[in-house]
């Protein structure tokens, strides 16, 4: 399971960050990136199929667990190797590392996003994206 992003829908409202912070002791596991004042995108752990962070973690704190990448804080040594290993820069650390933990199954960013830019349902998101692309394609011919 992962949180997917419908890139066309992000309006840079920061709700995902504030909600995530609320549930994670003041630290957000999602980072809103605004590019050139022209578009925005929330970045968070992609629950990679071949997680580089898991490979780098010698302490067994990061492990693949049922289709996601789980983080066991009690094993974390704070070495920061996972931060360097993540190609997307979506692991952070204070004392220990932190990243998106999917909020125990009900991601709060998904629930709170005013435009539905964040979603758990891969099928639904791709459906929207595909029909949008198809429509744009059709328009291109007019």
């Amino acid at each position: 399971m992962s949180v997917f992003v419908d890139q066309e829908r992000c309006i840079a409202c920061h709700a995902c960050e504030v909600a995530c912070k609320r549930l994670h002791g003041g630290k957000s596991n999602v980072s809103l990136q605004i590019v050139d004042g022209k578009a925005a995108l929330p970045l968070l752990c992609r629950q990679c199929e071949k997680p580089a962070c898991v490979a780098a973690c010698y302490a067994g704190a990061l492990v693949k667990e049922s289709d996601a990448v789980a983080f066991h804080a009690e094993k974390c040594t704070g070495c920061d190797l996972c931060l360097l290993a993540c190609p997307f820069g979506v692991i952070w650390s204070e004392k220990l590392a932190y990243k998106c933990d999917l909020c125990s199954g009900e991601p709060v960013c998904v629930a709170t996003c005013p435009t539905g830019a964040l979603a758990e349902d891969y099928q639904a998101v791709t459906q929207v994206i595909r029909s949008r692309a198809a429509r744009a394609f059709r328009r291109g011919f007019r």
């Binding site: 890139q7 980072s31 990136q33 590019v35 050139d36 022209k38 578009a39 925005a40 995108l41 970045l43 931060l83 360097l84 993540c86 190609p87 997307f88 820069g89 979506v90 692991i91 952070w92």
Partner: peptide, 14 residues
């Protein structure tokens, strides 16, 4: 660095 990785990712998407 991780911060620039995020920037690159988002620039690519944007």
């Amino acid at each position: 660095c991780p911060s620039c990785r995020r920037e690159q990712e988002s620039e690519k998407a944007v």
